[in-house]
Simulated scan of single mutants.
Amino acid sequence: MRSFPPLPDVRDSRAPDALLSGHLWLLELIDGTGLRFRMEASGLLRFGDPETTYGDPGAAPVALRPAVRDVRERFDRDALRDAVDTPEGVTFFGVATHHRGTDYDWDRLPPFLGTDVWIGTHEGSESEARAGAFRPPDAAAAIFEGVGLDPVNAIEREVNGRDFDPEAYAVPQSAWRDGPAAGVVVRNKRGGRGVIRAADGPTDTGAEAPAVDDPEAIAATYVTDDRFERVVEALDRRGEEPTVDAVADRIVEAIARETPVRFAGGGGSADPARVRTAVIERTRRRLDDR
């Protein structure tokens, strides 16, 4: 699977000199974890984060599982087959949105936002490498929409690079929270890219989280009425029975995605199995009371 492209700091001397030429797209930088995937000839989707790939979708860290499920449920395989001759040569890149220090409006923010599309073989001019290329930002956004997924939101489109001063640029408000964006990704249509991070970026101290070795405290803090009802309603909309196991699994994933709790296997030490056991007891009582 194709690796994530580098994203240098636009204000750093290592940023490509040609990045700020031509017309630029400014995209919101989302504070989450990179998630990539491709479709095999059978239609099976294979996933990976920036460092590794998963032999099975269930092997993804708990905080990334809502994004994996979102892609698997919404991805239009036939649309991809109709669009390219070799679907397995296409790699999709994006962000699995979860709490890494930035508190988003989790009800509105999609679990996955697409950022890039690599097409391994494609029709193009002779000057384009036949081995493949990343698509320009406008084309990538259209591709994600064409296969049923949400592209990352553009802050500005077609900004003349001659008029863009990265040193004077102020990171705007986020589309997904009441506060500034984590930063802005600057893209040109020739594949150049870089990032301008917010001066006071998020710091993930985990100070708000209960002790990570206390699953009862985690469950008591985060199995709220609102979170419970949102999970049950989501299962109902899909026509799935809200069993104790199904609701508990989704609540644990919601805790991993929406809160400062860090689970083992994802850079933290809370044990997902022990937290799930604590969540099950509260879930059973709540379902019995419905």
Rank of each mutant, 00 (worst) to 15 (best):
residue 61 P to D: 04
residue 68 V to S: 04
residue 47 F to R: 09
residue 122 H to V: 02
residue 131 A to G: 13
residue 86 T to K: 12
residue 141 A to R: 06
residue 57 P to M: 09
residue 115 T to K: 07
residue 115 T to F: 01
residue 50 P to E: 14
residue 101 G to E: 00
residue 116 D to H: 13
residue 74 R to C: 10
residue 81 R to Y: 09
residue 101 G to C: 06
residue 118 W to V: 00
residue 76 D to L: 01
residue 117 V to R: 03
residue 144 F to G: 06
residue 110 P to D: 01
residue 106 W to N: 00
residue 106 W to P: 07
residue 133 A to S: 15
residue 54 Y to H: 13
residue 97 T to E: 08
residue 82 D to G: 10
residue 116 D to R: 09
residue 113 L to C: 00
residue 61 P to H: 08
residue 106 W to Y: 11
residue 104 Y to R: 02
residue 110 P to A: 03
residue 59 A to R: 15
residue 107 D to G: 14
residue 84 V to F: 03
residue 114 G to Y: 02
residue 62 V to F: 11
residue 132 G to R: 02
residue 69 R to W: 11
residue 74 R to A: 08
residue 113 L to T: 07
residue 61 P to M: 10
residue 71 V to Y: 10
residue 40 E to L: 13
residue 72 R to Y: 06
residue 113 L to F: 05
residue 37 F to G: 06
residue 138 D to M: 06
residue 82 D to M: 04
residue 62 V to A: 04
residue 130 R to T: 11
residue 131 A to Y: 05
residue 117 V to D: 00
residue 41 A to F: 12
residue 101 G to N: 01
residue 77 R to T: 13
residue 119 I to K: 00
residue 63 A to H: 08
residue 61 P to R: 02
residue 63 A to S: 11
residue 46 R to N: 07
residue 113 L to D: 04
residue 103 D to H: 12
residue 128 E to H: 09
residue 84 V to K: 09
residue 102 T to A: 11
residue 42 S to T: 14
residue 131 A to K: 06
residue 91 T to Y: 10
residue 145 E to C: 10
residue 41 A to M: 14
residue 128 E to Y: 08
residue 81 R to G: 04
residue 60 A to M: 07
residue 81 R to L: 02
residue 39 M to P: 01
residue 42 S to Q: 05
residue 84 V to I: 12
residue 52 T to W: 11
residue 142 A to C: 10
residue 134 F to N: 05
residue 125 S to D: 14
residue 100 R to A: 07
residue 134 F to R: 13
residue 122 H to T: 06
residue 76 D to C: 04
residue 60 A to V: 08
residue 81 R to D: 02
residue 51 E to R: 15
residue 94 G to V: 00
residue 38 R to M: 10
residue 133 A to F: 12
residue 95 V to C: 13
residue 96 A to W: 01
residue 124 G to F: 13
residue 124 G to D: 14
residue 85 D to C: 09
